[in-house]
Design a protein around this nucleic acid. Structure first.
Length: 492
RNA sequence: GGCGGCGUACCCAAGUGGCUAAGGGAGAGGUCUGCAAAACCUUUAUGCAGCGGUUCAAAUCCGCUCGCCGCCUCCA
């Protein structure tokens, strides 16, 4: 398995520190507002990395934190006239609702900053003792100039940064690039007792404390959005390595941004969509699949059109599942045993069997190359076409059933790693009925299909076609099959 | 200004030295169908921003030019 490591700037063979267990820490969210689609991307990307690692047989310990104390939370609490912990609780709950919808599993450990105050204080104290940090008026700062490796992750030159001192608001710092480990609380702000007086942790230190506690001094993978590379992760490295004297995380993984009109989606620009807004218009599986349709390090341009295209391709999957199920439940009516079917049918079967048997390998090859979910999805849809092609060849016999059953199970198994394709076609269409706000009930649709079937019996094509047209106008497409008429929600 | 990334068909998107440049969406034609839909087949880049160079061989490596974006402040 090869992983692109931000630290080295290149893809590296993944070798875990301990051969059986992989330890992953991903930076979570600051719970002061609803999550937007960018937060969803990061969560989904690391969720897939974690699932794939498990699929490969690693025992994974996945930690994803919540930042539940911070300036933004305090400000939000002030605005809403409630306490900071109520704000944190509210948006933590909302985070879970969104992530549950998107199929993002819970991390194995989900620590919160405020539950690790003692650990944070111990580290800060240790850093002061070792001469990496200093206290001024109840604030503690990390002295960047004392840490030789500073800048190694974000590829910045520490000397330039130290020299290029700009006007700094906080003049108590020895150097403008020094950063806060502990902040003295102002009157009325939440605070915890510390050797430096009442205060609260700085932003970066919580991740050092929580990863140290739950994963140890050195662990395998640390990640988050690319905007965390500097200063957050750079500072984490400095604090952690200065404190422990050991290398911190081995591999650094960063996901790219979501853009709108080519510009980074961000709160300050106001060009963002919350997960809730998007889920009001699109099925969560569509959103998840959309996020995986581009390699995790590349930017993704967000647009309704892109989502609709993904919706079409997922529909293609469920349509194929229906075809497979129909075939599997069909009573064998071909009198010919498979061997007597003649050259072409047998050849088709053999070819398809090979495709089925090599599918896992192709999937893993894609995923092993820096979690290339976009390529993996390409293989999946190519596979779906092969399934359809085989079904079109009018296969028969127990062997054909066996292979198709395996194909179906394979799609489910692979789908589980990406956490897509987990529903039945019926569940998919029911969900689409809701997200597309189809103003009809299933019963009404079935009634109209019955009406139309009667008309078709009478060969009254005028009535039959007008019913079809009426349903299509309401977003329902009919498919006439040999022995029945199926309905589905129009997509795209 | 410093550092980094990107530019592949009508749209999205994989591919980073060597087989006919994956896959999805859209369009066109066809098979099938009462008509459709779905599915399948054919088709849409002798070319990967442009220009040079290295190489037996380049979308892929190097240089320059153009265009777009990100980080350097909170940010997934």
């Amino acid at each position: 398995m090869r992983i692109y490591n931000t630290l080295s700037g290149s893809k590296e063979e993944f070798i875990p520190i301990n051969s059986h267990g992989v330890k992953i820490y991903a930076c979570g969210v600051t719970v002061y507002d609803y999550c937007h689609i960018g937060h969803a991307r990061s969560a989904v990307v690391f969720d897939v990395i974690r699932r794939y690692m498990r699929y490969k047989g690693f025992h994974v310990t996945y930690v994803r934190n919540f930042t539940d104390i911070d300036d933004k939370i305090i400000n939000r609490a002030r605005q809403e006239g409630i306490t900071w912990d109520i704000v944190a609780k509210k948006y933590t709950d909302e985070y879970y609702k969104d992530m549950d919808m998107l199929g993002v599993g819970r991390a194995d450990i989900e620590p919160k900053a405020t539950e690790h105050i003692q650990e944070i204080i111990d580290i800060v104290k240790g850093l002061i003792d070792k001469g990496f940090a200093y206290e001024v008026d109840g604030n503690v700062y990390f002295e960047v100039g004392t840490f030789p490796g500073y800048g190694k992750l974000s590829k910045r030159d520490k000397e330039d940064m130290l020299a290029g001192a700009r006007v700094e608001v906080d003049e108590r710092k020895k150097n403008p690039i020094d950063f806060a480990l502990w902040k003295a609380s102002k009157e009325g702000e939440p605070s915890w007792d510390s050797p430096w007086g009442p205060g609260r942790p700085g932003w970066h230190i919580e991740c050092s404390a929580m990863s140290l506690k739950h994963l140890g001094e050195s662990f395998d993978i640390h990640g988050g959005g690319a905007d965390l590379i500097f200063p957050h992760h750079e500072n984490e490295i400095a604090q952690s390595e200065a404190f422990t004297g050991k290398p911190f995380a081995r591999y650094w993984i960063h996901n790219g941004f979501i853009t709108i009109d080519k510009e980074k989606m961000s709160k300050s620009l106001g060009n963002f969509f919350t997960i809730k807004e998007i889920l009001d218009k699109f099925d969560p599986e569509v959103v998840r699949c959309f996020l995986l349709s581009t390699h995790y390090r590349s930017p993704i341009e967000f647009s309704d059109e892109q989502l609709r295209e993904v919706e079409s391709s997922i529909d293609r999957y469920y349509t194929t599942v229906i075809r497979i199920q129909d075939f599997l439940s069909k009573k064998e009516n071909s009198p010919l045993p498979p061997l007597e079917k003649g050259g072409e049918g047998g050849l088709m079967e053999k070819t398809f069997e090979n495709v089925v048997n090599s599918f896992n390998e192709k999937f893993e090859e894609a995923m092993d190359d820096d979690f290339n979910t976009a390529l993996a999805l390409g293989h999946i849809f190519e596979f779906i076409r092969d399934v359809n092609r085989f079904l079109d060849s009018k296969p028969s016999g127990p062997k054909a059933k066996e292979i198709l059953l395996k194909a179906k199970e394979l799609l489910m198994e692979i789908g589980e790693v990406l956490n897509i394709f987990g529903r039945t076609p019926n569940e998919w269409y029911c969900s689409l009925m809701a997200t597309k706000k189809i103003g009809l009930t299933k019963e009404e649709i079935l009634y109209m299909i019955k009406e139309r079937e009667d008309a078709r019996e009478r060969k009254d094509w005028g009535i039959a076609d007008s019913i079809r047209k009426e349903l299509e106008g309401k977003g329902i497409i009919l498919e006439d099959k040999k022995d029945r008429t199926d309905w589905k929600v129009k997509v795209g």
